[in-house]
Structures are given as structure tokens and as C-alpha cells.
């Protein structure tokens, strides 16, 4: 267990947060069916850094993007979610 620094609330216990999906797994409403299926049903799942969407569910409920390492659990960056955080 570790702490995640919420862009709005500061460092909080990880149990307050929930993981949703990676930023490259968001369905683009303007894209085609194949792209939507790829986004819904596949993941890069790297043994390294990935950009993940998390939510401060049991806190301020805001969404954010974590650049997190999946072996060391290091959190490289936390960004409040917004138009600039999504592809």
C-alpha cells in the first residue's frame, strides 16, 4: 500500500482511490468499431510505466492520470484529468 497525491487533496492513502483503465483504453466516440473493440478489450499491460486513470472515489471523487510503474509501484506523475490529459 502506498500514498497517492491527489491534485486536489494532497497525499492520501491508496485505499481511498480506485483504478479505472489506461489512457489508451478510452473509447473514442468518433473512431471506428475496430478501434473501439481494441480500446475496450486489449491492454499493453507493460512491465513498466503506463498512464492510468484513477479516481479519488472515497475522497473528492475527482479523476486523475497516474504515470505509474507496475513493478516498483513508483508514481512518476499525477495529473488532474482534463482535455489535455486524454488523447
Amino acid at each position: 500500500m502506498y500514498q497517492i497525491t491527489c491534485p486536489h487533496c494532497g497525499p492520501r492513502a491508496q485505499t481511498e482511490f480506485t483504478y479505472e483503465r489506461t489512457t489508451d483504453s478510452v473509447v473514442d466516440p468518433a473512431g471506428d468499431t475496430h478501434a473501439a473493440m481494441q480500446a475496450l478489450y486489449t491492454r499493453a499491460n507493460p512491465m513498466g510505466l503506463d498512464d492510468e486513470i484513477w479516481r479519488h472515489t472515497y475522497g473528492c471523487r475527482a479523476w486523475m492520470v497516474l504515470t505509474r510503474h507496475r513493478v516498483t509501484h513508483e508514481i512518476r506523475a499525477v495529473k488532474a484529468i482534463g482535455p489535455e490529459a486524454l488523447p
Binding site: 481494441q38 478489450y41 486489449t42 491492454r43 499493453a44 499491460n45 507493460p46 512491465m47 507496475r70
Partner: peptide, 18 residues
């Protein structure tokens, strides 16, 4: 456990999260 990683070496994206 590590299928995503090994399949990734072959260029595949799987319906799997570890």
C-alpha cells in the same frame, strides 16, 4: 501472470491485465 509482457515482445496486445 506475465502473458501481457511476453506477448508484447511479439507485438501482441492481449485482453489481459496483470
Amino acid at each position: 501472470g506475465h502473458s501481457g509482457h511476453v506477448a508484447g515482445l511479439a507485438g501482441l496486445r492481449l485482453p489481459i491485465e496483470s
